[in-house]
Amino acid sequence: MSATLTVDDPTLLGFAEEVGETGPVAIVGGQTRWDIGGESAGEPRLLRAPEGIVDYKPEEMTVQVRAGTTVADLHVALAEKGQRTALPDRGGTVGGALAVGENDIRALGRGRVRESLLQVRYVSAEGRIVSSGGPTVKNVSGFDLPRLMVGSLGTLGCIAEVILRTNPIPAVSRWLHADRVDAGTTFDGLLHPSAVLTDGSGTWVQLEGHGADVDQQASILQTLGSFTEVDGPPVLPEHRWSLSPSEAGAFPASDGDLAFVAAIGLGLVFADAPQPLRRLDPAVTLINERMKQNFDPTGRLNPGRDAGRK
């Protein structure tokens, strides 16, 4: 075995030591989504993951960054080279965004969080540093632990450092809005909009790309309604719903005066009431439980939380 495989970065080793081998622990990021996945239990020690950009390779479209770095700081650094990531910037950390796994409402344009994680280093329940995935944009070497970590709410391992895929920031980005146009028809008429949002009466569209392409798509929009330039998306209601694109397009399913913003083509809806609890197939729950048992036999990682109750 090559010696370089063993992680010798003192920062990560220090984090592993902090996590240790016993006692309940939970990692704190920006706490922007602290309340999902059930109540924290067992009074865990609250730790912060290490911070800092380790290695940014714009020509590889990858960035190696420690989990405690804020998404905002990361994006500032990437923007200097004209790049960004799929992570939503809600004031939280890179590790938090990955552990929660929620997408930006403009995910059609910037990609899904689960597809942006190339390599993960986490501290296991036994206090060991585990790596999985790889630094290249394409990789099928071994089982896909990065996928498992995204959205796992830190219940399987404490994310320490990751390599993320970056994307070029398009030359032009415009938001347009019109009232009384059908959002579904709008979505179908465009090639690949970065976002199409509707609150039931107005439609917001984000177009990104080369200037001429954006102009061409914008002219298609003008045939559908009287779209005008706006600064950005509407204010999103508090509660996040995960639906299929067709369900989101027909939201709300029953009559009522729910205020909402639905992301067409993506299936995300923000409404002023929470989504009714979704139920997992018991056979799937069994695998989830076995997974948790295998990775964290004593249940010390972020106790009380359950990725199945997001």
């Binding site: 089982f143 498992l148 995204v150 959205g151 992301a263 995300l268």
Partner: peptide
């Protein structure tokens, strides 16, 4: 088919296994 299925991403780990 929903945007963010709940639970661990077992779909994601199955692909490529």
């Amino acid at each position: 088919l929903d945007a963010e299925p709940q639970g661990f991403d077992l779909r994601g780990v199955f692909v490529g296994s």
